[in-house]
Design a protein around this nucleic acid. Structure first.
Lengths: 185, 185
DNA sequence: TTATTTTGGAATTATTCATTTCCAAAATCA
DNA sequence: TGATTTTGGAAATGAATAATTCCAAAATAA
């Protein structure tokens, strides 16, 4: 089942929900259309399962990035580095399921749209918490607005994912990370 | 003709190329399907015309933002302010045709993809030029890498357009602008 | 005024789409 | 071993799609 969802995640990242047909999903997951419908009820159900898996995997990667510890600033730098890597080369061109789904928000039903917005809210909350942690441990300027800087960080992360679709090198993306950290000064 | 393209720009911004049908375009432009085909050859032709118009309008807005003059830093602040406004409220939720098209890159033919990438390149070149201008007039730190900081600015601008789809207030977005300017310190 | 050309769009066409139906093979149960 | 249930998927269905055809009204030319 996990590999079915991995295949779905991949094709939805590349093409988005609307441009991905059941035939595409069948190729990507290895299941025939009838089986997809038996397992997920419909295309939207498979999308939601894939989206959840993608968000969970992202959460796990972010936790891993934070496990190397250090102070708030170190953690944020790890996070930006993680996104810089994910946004470069062939993997970067594949795209982000959250960014892609955000662009398609207008074509989604309310419940699906809520899931997409919730994913952003969760990332933004993590950013706020980590910035505040840095402000407490002294690694981040205590005077900056944690909400605003978290919002800016979220834009940078999403922007990397979009620009990554056009093909950027790892060096290009990593160069941005150093500069972005100045926001926290 | 201009209002036809304006209608097309609007619906493509909101829904993207793939999720916009000829029926949608007919409603948005006021032309029947047969007329659309006579004027633009096909859906892709209308999209390209709409995309060109959107990019040209964006260029005009950026020129306008720069006309208030000032040094390099002032100009960049105006540009970020322009994007912050465009990315907030109902207008922000409508989305950006360039960001949206970037997400759909994998579903485009090579010529259309080149146009989308060219739009990014043009914005990035403007950012590089303006940062260098600021480094010459002393308003921007001469030591920072103009290429990397332009790349980061591009990510911020595109990220604002994506996050703006989820609904952000003008105050939220403007708060980011102040912080983003620290990159140039 | 009549003939011809141009224009706008309704209707149609062929294809693709999401979803359902139905069938046969495999697995399970008695 | 035979009967029944489960499972996977090919084929079919009805709707939506991009694009084309054809018609009538409007405009132009003689």
């Amino acid at each position: 089942m996990a590999t079915v969802l991995d295949g779905a995640v991949r094709i939805f990242r590349e093409r988005g929900y609307n441009a991905t047909s059941i035939a595409d999903l069948s190729l990507a997951t290895g299941l025939a259309a009838g089986s997809i419908y038996k397992a997920f009820k419909d295309k939207r159900g498979l999308f939601l399962a894939a989206f959840d898996r993608y968000v969970e995997e992202g959460d796990a990667l972010r936790r891993l990035a934070f496990q190397n510890g250090g102070n708030g600033r170190d953690k944020l730098k790890s996070l930006l580095g993680l996104y810089a890597n994910a946004s470069s080369g062939a993997e970067g061109m594949r795209g982000c399921l959250v960014a892609g789904s955000t662009i398609e928000l207008a074509t989604m039903d309310a419940a699906t749209a809520r899931q997409v917005k919730a994913a952003h809210a969760r990332t933004e909350q993590l950013l706020v918490r980590t910035i505040r942690e840095g402000q407490v441990d002294g690694s981040i300027n205590a005077a900056i607005d944690s909400g605003a800087s978290a919002g800016l960080m979220l834009c940078i992360l999403q922007g990397m994912r979009v620009v990554g679709k056009t093909g950027r090198s790892r060096d290009d993306m990593n160069a941005l990370v150093e500069l972005a950290m100045k926001i926290l000064d």
